[in-house]
Each structure stands twice: as structure tokens, then as C-alpha cells.
């Protein structure tokens, strides 16, 4: 699981990328805790593909941001992000989301977008929320 992400993101510190991304994903989309291995694999594939399509500079920034996101909570909570409980993870991400520095907010926005793409970009997730658009349009509903 998340093997492709390790390659795509080139996570620079020791923590495995999947542990961090998994922790972020389940905080951003709590239902992600219920995904099975195959579904996680699809989430991973979507995110890895999106990252791979980006410029190398952006990929490096993302890797650095993920590293900071993982390790900075050590200063505040005494634990890395992936080792925090759900409530503290939520609080930490909310701080990033509302940070006074644009770079921090923007980074969070990018990570959040990737997670949402990985989760809601799957046809299964679209169906689960009741999205039913079809080429046949009205005909399919009548």
C-alpha cells in the first residue's frame, strides 16, 4: 500500500509516506478508515498519478510540506502527526488550514485536494454519496 506514493513524493525523512498520508486521509475524510486494501490501492494510484503529472519543483515542495506536517506536531504535542489521536490530528490540520502564512495555508490546500481527489475520484465513492449522472440523462431516471 502506498508504494507508488513513496516514489512519486520522495518523502525525505524516515517516516514512511504511507503512514503520514494515511493519517491525513482519514482525518480529511473520516470514512477512509473503512476502505479495504483494494480501495486504498485505488486511492494511492489516483494520488500518485496526480503527483507524477506535476513539475519536479512542486513535487519537492509537497514532500517537504508533508515532512513538516508530520514532524512539527512533535514540538506542540510531543508526538508526530501520524502518532496523534484523531482529535489532535484534526486540531493540527485546522491550524494549518487557518495559518496566517499563505505558504502554509496553500500547502494544506494542496494536500487536502490530493486526498479528496484520491477518495472522491473513485467511481465507488461517487456512487456511495448518491451521485448518479449518466450519459442517458433523463432517460435513465424515467
Amino acid at each position: 500500500m502506498f508504494a507508488r506514493l513513496r516514489v512519486a513524493v520522495r518523502f525525505p525523512l524516515m517516516t514512511p509516506a504511507h503512514a503520514v498520508l494515511c493519517a491525513i486521509a482519514t482525518t480529511v475524510v473520516p470514512e477512509a478508515t473503512g476502505l479495504d486494501a483494494t480501495q486504498w490501492d485505488e486511492v494511492e494510484r489516483i494520488i500518485a498519478r496526480a503527483i507524477a503529472a506535476r513539475a519536479p519543483g512542486l513535487r519537492r515542495s509537497l514532500a517537504l510540506y508533508l515532512a513538516l506536517l508530520e514532524w512539527l506536531p512533535l514540538l506542540r504535542y510531543g508526538r508526530r502527526f501520524s502518532k496523534l489521536d484523531a482529535e489532535r490530528r484534526t486540531r493540527w490540520l485546522a491550524r494549518l488550514q487557518d495559518a496566517p502564512v499563505l505558504l502554509v495555508r496553500r500547502g494544506f490546500w494542496g494536500v487536502r485536494t490530493l486526498i479528496l481527489m484520491g477518495y472522491y475520484g473513485r467511481p465507488d465513492a461517487a456512487a456511495a454519496i448518491g451521485y448518479r449522472a449518466a450519459a442517458r440523462g433523463w432517460e435513465a431516471r424515467r
Partner: peptide
């Protein structure tokens, strides 16, 4: 569509998911 809608909502977590489930 689902992903565009999800990224267009502000916030994350339970409240965000609740809105998405109300699609």
C-alpha cells in the same frame, strides 16, 4: 462532479463528509 464538489467545500473532516453524503 464529486471531486470538484469536495474540493470546493471549505473545511474537512466530519462536517465536510456530511455535506458530501447529502449529494
Amino acid at each position: 462532479f464529486p471531486f470538484v464538489t469536495a474540493k470546493s467545500l471549505t473545511g474537512f473532516g466530519a462536517t465536510h463528509s456530511e455535506i458530501m453524503r447529502a449529494f
